[in-house]
């Protein structure tokens, strides 16, 4: 088994941090964009890019409520995203055991 077997969507520092942070929430909970940004310390543009890639893969969902300055974007892991992170963790564990 090589590092190529790891899910490339998750196997990038920023996206791994996003997935691991959202996975710490109970199933069905969402985190606001600004709180997520505070927790993983990415620039807004960088964070949006990675969130969009994960959302395109159906690993997370985002919801925007309100409009203008009062708008609020929340992101949450989907079941598929949680399962993908579990698989990633399992594969990583297998790789480390083989080293």
């Amino acid at each position: 088994m090589t590092a190529d077997t790891l899910d490339p969507l998750i196997h990038a520092p920023a996206r791994l941090q996003i997935m691991a942070t959202l996975a710490a929430l109970p199933d069905g909970d969402a985190l606001s964009f600004t709180r997520l940004q505070d927790m993983i310390r990415l620039t807004p543009g960088n964070l949006i890019t990675h969130l969009r890639r994960l959302e395109d893969a159906d690993y997370l969902t985002s919801e925007k409520t309100g409009a203008g300055p009062a708008s609020r974007t929340s992101v949450a892991l989907t079941h598929r995203g949680r399962a993908a992170l579990d698989d990633y963790t399992e594969t990583l564990r297998g790789l480390l055991n083989g080293l």
Binding site: A3, H11, A12, P13, N46, I48, T49, S71, R72, T73
Partner: peptide, 18 residues
């Protein structure tokens, strides 16, 4: 949280470091 950026208008930064 006020005025969070629109996710459809992202800048193209990447962090694809292996």
């Amino acid at each position: 949280m006020n005025g969070t950026p629109d996710m459809s208008s992202a800048e193209s930064y990447g962090d694809e470091r292996g």
